[in-house]
Design a protein around this nucleic acid. Structure first.
Length: 858
RNA sequence: AGGAGGUUAGCUCAGUUGGUAGAGCGCCACCCUUACAAGGUGGAUGUCGUCGGUUCGAAUCCGGCACCUCCUACCA
């Protein structure tokens, strides 16, 4: 039965990982009634090298809920996806192998690339080569991830996996695109879009973050045509050549006189209108500002509203491009001068040009004073390290701005845990000011399932796109229906976009990918909508929001019933653990040091949505708990071993728990089960664990100690049997309660004697009040016993004596209404306290207050 | 600037219908007690951020303020 002297976690962990996998312990059973399903929309982790302790933290929390629901008897659908699609993988491949994708290069059949240990200059490889290496690398990483997930005992059904770059996900993702296209919810536009000059791609509003940077105000003097001048203040003087207008507030007396006149830009001599507009704030800067194409989103809005011309001076690499002042659009009052000045800026990157132009402004004597330092917030791609520019390009947009109100309402249909996070969602949707740009000028992603026809005049028709019918498809490799491959990129032919979709355009479909949507309606109806979406709070504006968008557009049904938001793991300085900060903790070593159960204990001790500090000592507490469970179980087993106890024996003889002390203890357990269950049903795993743990320590320290002499000495008497059964039942119950949290130790102990009920504790049923039809005494008896036991220990301890020291005399004062209860536990107390019967005097107190007093001599 | 969360023991945190302030860790003292020394028992430690209100009674409810974290926006 039980052979181990000491608990050896790593041995046990290996053993059960294998067993659970072989026995399909966590498999979802298709085709059963939908009502009994519990469906989890698992977060597919981004494949970017390795998982950190923060992942272990949040995924374990979800796993506890999955295990609980499974034990409740639910048919749990708990899949695992890998988000391997997109820029993170590309970035990783770049640094790992020292290569980058150059679409102009030709495929090399036997290309060999090696992992680089240090930074090397990047070498170009063809698109096809690059994608092959990406595919290969993610497979390797996914194996590593799976190993860790298994080690931490996620009860995932490993038959239910997907990769966001996989054929199945691509099919769903392309289908989603086509569905939105047919519903007129998506469109192709040529428009200024947030652009990362380094990655050479458009990005969406959700991918943007603000970073604090040092900037400078440059006060620049403009002339007004026909006389007069004014000074604008700008942090982006390098865009001066792109200035298309200046604007001041209509009521601003300083500038009223200039409205309807034109200004002449310094250096470049362009004539631009001076437009009154409430967009200008008289309090800010000099009250008059220049509109450039494009400095910020406001410029874009102003430009659109006033139908201003487009002066594009930046390339997609973020350099000032060649322009001609002969051209109508850049027409200058002094084109020679303009040309001369611009020549010194042309080809420079934005930041270089910004400093360079200061010299020119000084030379021309139009810079008023020196540039004044200021801190400003600049928009960056969250994965990038160069400021974003607004570059007009052709992109696909999902029209979310038209549905803001609906999406806000729709978010309310999901139950948020904790509820306050709904606000974050709402606020994000309210503040949206761009449609969702889903095209990326990248490589490792899902292709757009469309082609554009080419007219006889070689013009590409972006409006009447040709839709793919066979999915998934890569239009770069296949021709549309009715066309031949030879017609690619030819007049009267067709062309495909090399762009791929935003990775969120696919991962926003996780509930659809899991359910096989359109392609398997029976399965879809069984698995959609999901019961639970677990996710972190920083991706509410992306993953949660986009999933709601897709679900709303496709089905008019919320994607899940509940969303549970997990917190972060922060370092002792309270900053988020992240790669860039270098404070990442890799979980493997921690698990090895403290055991998987101990790590899981730590992860599930913190409340939903709450950030948690990474502290080694927390793992020790978990380790201590598992050791304690092991030892307590060992003890109970030693006690019942020779009784041929079994689970059926226990269940059949539950009526033999006759001692009021034992019955009273069981009442305490019943209350525990009830409270723990209710917390877990509300996804409050930490509150539940807290209660279970507390009661378990009371079990070990008090109850066990109180009754163990009885079970030793009266084994064959009804009193002894009552105690033994109660001990066994308590252990059985505690194992089940701990099982979702500590799957290894509970499975091991379960295997000693309870396997007859279910092979794995994780397939056994969550405890229900097995014995609640019996009339028990209340909790009072056991509470009284514990109080008196505590007083006795207290006395002995303060006399600095061993607890085993025999008592010479003891008098216990008890309120008269409790005397009867005391009689119930008297024998147990005498034995546990090492008190001979004749040493005891009971004093009755008329005082009904619940205070006991003792005095004893040793 | 708007929003969310927070402020309880040295540290990390519970305290969900208002009723004598809690746990773990750490600290101190003691104890080899027939599961457990990787253990056990006991102890010390708090103006519950601050000011005010409601109440017989407030860590808890209401309002003001301060500070911390995060989200969003503005950023000429």
């Amino acid at each position: 039965m039980m052979k181990l002297k000491k608990y050896n976690p790593s041995e046990i962990e290996t053993k059960y990982q294998k067993a659970w996998l072989e026995n399909n312990t966590y498999a979802y059973k298709p085709g059963l009634s939908k009502e009994n399903n519990f469906i989890i929309d698992t977060a597919p982790p981004t494949i970017s090298g390795s998982l950190h302790i923060g992942h272990v933290f949040s995924y374990t929390q979800t796993d506890v809920l999955a295990r609980f629901q499974r034990m409740l008897g639910k048919n749990v659908f708990y899949p695992m996806g890998w988000d391997d699609n997109g820029l993170p993988t590309e970035k990783r491949i770049q640094t790992l192998y020292g290569i980058y994708c150059d679409p102009m290069k030709n495929y090399e059949k036997n290309l060999v690339v090696e992992k680089q240990t240090k930074k090397v200059p990047l070498r170009p490889v063809s698109r096809k080569n690059f994608l092959e290496i990406c595919h290969q690398q993610v497979l390797e990483d996914e194996k590593k991830y799976k190993k860790l997930w298994s080690h931490i005992a996620l009860s995932v059904d490993w038959n239910q996996t997907y990769e966001t770059i996989g054929a199945h996900s691509q099919k769903i993702s392309q289908k989603s695109f086509l569905d939105l296209y047919e519903k007129n919810l998506i469109e192709n536009r040529f428009t200024p879009v947030s652009w990362d000059v380094n990655f050479q791609t458009a990005i969406a509003q959700a991918d943007i973050e603000d970073r604090e940077r040092q900037g400078f105000y440059h006060d620049i003097r403009f002339e007004v045509k026909g006389g007069g001048q004014f000074t604008i203040s700008t942090t982006r003087p390098e865009l001066l050549a792109a200035c298309v207008a200046v604007t001041a507030h209509p009521e601003d007396d300083r500038y009223k006189k200039f409205f309807s006149k034109t200004a002449i830009t310094p250096l470049f001599g362009a004539e631009v209108p001076i437009i009154p507009s409430s967009h200008a704030d008289p309090e800010k800067g000099t009250g008059i500002l220049m509109i450039c194409t494009f400095g910020d989103m406001e410029d874009v809005h102003f430009w659109q509203k006033h139908s201003l011309p487009l002066k594009q001076i930046l390339t997609s690499q973020g350099r000032l491009k060649e322009i001609s002042f002969q051209e109508e659009i850049f027409k200058s009052v002094d084109s020679e001068k303009a040309k001369k000045y611009y020549a010194t800026l042309c080809g420079l990157k934005v930041l270089k040009a910004r400093t360079q132009i200061v010299d020119l402004l000084k030379e021309e004597n139009v810079l008023v004073g020196e540039p004044k330092a200021t801190t400003q917030f600049v928009k960056y791609y969250e994965k990038g390290d160069q400021a974003l520019e607004l570059i007009p390009t052709r992109q696909w947009f999902i029209k979310i701005l038209d549905y803001k109100q609906e999406l806000i309402e729709y978010g309310k249909k999901v139950i948020w845990h904790p509820p306050s996070f709904y606000k974050r969602y709402e606020q994000w949707v309210e503040n949206l000011n761009q449609d969702w740009c889903i095209s990326r000028q990248r490589f490792f992603g899902v292709p757009f399932p469309i082609w554009y026809p080419i007219h006889s005049n070689s013009e590409i028709d972006y409006k009447n796109v040709l839709l793919a019918s066979q999915l998934p498809t890569d239009p770069m490799k296949t021709a549309p229906k009715g066309y031949k491959e030879e017609q690619r990129d030819k007049a009267n032919g067709f062309t495909a976009t090399p762009d791929v979709m935003d990775t969120w355009a696919t991962s926003s479909l996780t509930p659809f990918i899991s359910s096989h949507w359109v392609y398997d309606l029976k399965r879809h109806n069984e698995l959609f909508p999901a019961d639970l979406r677990p996710q972190a709070h920083e991706i509410i504006r992306t993953w949660a929001f986009y999933t709601i968008v897709k679900s709303y557009f496709h089905t008019k049904c919320p994607p899940w019933k509940n969303i549970a938001i997990s917190g972060w793991v922060v370092d002792p300085n309270r900053s988020k653990m992240s790669k860039s900060k270098g404070n990442i903790i890799t979980p493997e070593q921690t698990i090895k040091n403290y055991s998987a159960d101990a790590v899981r204990y730590w992860a599930t001790k913190s409340r939903l949505g709450q950030d948690t500090v990474y502290e080694e000592r927390m793992f020790k507490t978990g380790q201590r708990l598992t050791t304690k469970i092991f030892n307590a179980a060992k003890f109970v087993n030693l006690q019942v071993e020779d009784q041929k106890f079994s689970i059926s024996y226990l269940k059949n003889n539950i009526n033999s728990i006759t001692e009021p002390v034992d019955q009273s203890w069981l009442v305490k357990l019943e209350v525990l089960v009830e409270q723990a269950s209710s917390h877990l049903k509300n996804f409050e795993y930490s509150l539940s664990l807290d209660l279970i743990e507390k009661t378990f320590w009371i079990f070990c320290d008090n109850y066990l100690e109180l009754i163990k002499s009885r079970t030793y000495q009266l084994k064959d008497k009804p009193e002894g049997l009552s105690g033994l059964l109660s001990l066994d039942y308590s252990l059985y119950l505690f194992l089940k309660l701990f099982a979702p949290y500590l799957p290894y130790i509970t499975e091991e102990v379960w295997s000693w004697r309870y396997k007859e009920e279910q092979n794995s504790i994780h397939n056994s049923k969550w405890p229900t009040p097995l014995i609640s039809d019996k009339k028990f005494t209340s909790k009072e008896t056991i509470e009284l016993a514990f109080s008196i036991l505590e007083l006795i220990r207290n006395e002995k301890s303060s006399q600095q004596k061993s607890l085993a020291t025999e008592v010479k005399t003891i008098s216990i004062t008890i309120p008269s209404n409790k005397i009867k209860l005391f009689q119930f536990c008297k024998q147990d107390i005498l034995k546990a306290g090492h008190i001979p019967e004749k040493a005891l005097t009971i004093l009755e107190s008329k005082d009904k207050e619940e205070s006991y007093k003792i005095s004893l001599t040793l």
